[in-house]
Amino acid sequence: MGRITLEAVTKRFGDVEVIPPLNLDIEDGEFVVFVGPSGCGKSTLLRLIAGLEDTSGGRILIDGRDATDTPPAKRGLAMVFQSYALYPHMSVRKNIAFPMRMAGVPQDEQDRRIASAAKALNLTDYLDRKPGQLSGGQRQRVAIGRAIVREPSAFLFDEPLSNLDAALRVGMRLEISELHNRLRTTMIYVTHDQVEAMTMADKIVVLRAGNIEQVGSPMELYRAPRNLFVAGFIGSPRMNLITGPEAGRHGAATIGIRPEHIRVSATEGAWQGRVGVSEHLGSDTFFYVEDTGLADTITVRAGGEIDLHHGDTVWLTPDMGHLHRFDVQGSRMA
């Protein structure tokens, strides 16, 4: 079981309140991603749940029991750190065994769990190496192995992929998702990368300055961002945000339209502009359209085979069904 409830959890460093009173429910078996720009308090929140930081107020419940003052080791959680935090003087086997050794798990049970974790994570051939002899991706897997063998009620991941190169990151993302599908254990995952959040999460928690901006499934956040911050943060490329008279025509202070919800035409449409930079990805093409009089540039997604060049005049037509309207405070309008 791994149901985690935060009740008015607060964290202050000296006089600075990094997390104002915050409430959050994490259901058993959920994959929850905390996402937000650096300094938004997402790592602090994770460390509060882990018990590595003391709360300044509020309660943390794990499976209904108050764990606010329980030391980290007794919370039944496992954590994978950004730097992996492997013990450099121990072999892979000893690293993975360490939490079991601390818990006094019998030797044959330890061996069994190590073998099964190593098999699942493709580490069987590396069990007797030291962490220093492994690649970044392998170290990452050792860190995950160390977490798995504890059979925790929830896994905590603190930006685990940020030290890997792009190709490995995609691979590990899949592996972690698969792991979750297999174990169905609660996972809390911290990242600043909205792609990781969108692809992995059951539930995304968008944080800014310690406040929860929105909680919801990836598609909920995509379809109905509650405010301008979430609108700008979720989705890639970013949503186009337009202010001024054009927004006023729609009765809003700001309107937003995603690049994939704009039709491009060389001959006719609602907005006229000129093609600036274009990025051809093969399957898709992104145009950065200038001189529309609406915003500095409007990003548009088009098919891969479209034939438009730098300096060409284009016409853009937003798909009205996907237009987002925001008021002066930046909140979503119904």
């Binding site: 496992a78 360490f98 939490p99 504890r150």
Partner: peptide, 22 residues
């Protein structure tokens, strides 16, 4: 790195274990 000591703490090491083994 401080994260290693935190990892040990998460792994259930007491202060004594932390000093002795890590």
């Amino acid at each position: 790195p401080g994260e290693i000591l935190e990892a040990a703490r998460m792994d259930g090491a007491s202060l004594r274990d932390e000093i002795l083994y890590v």
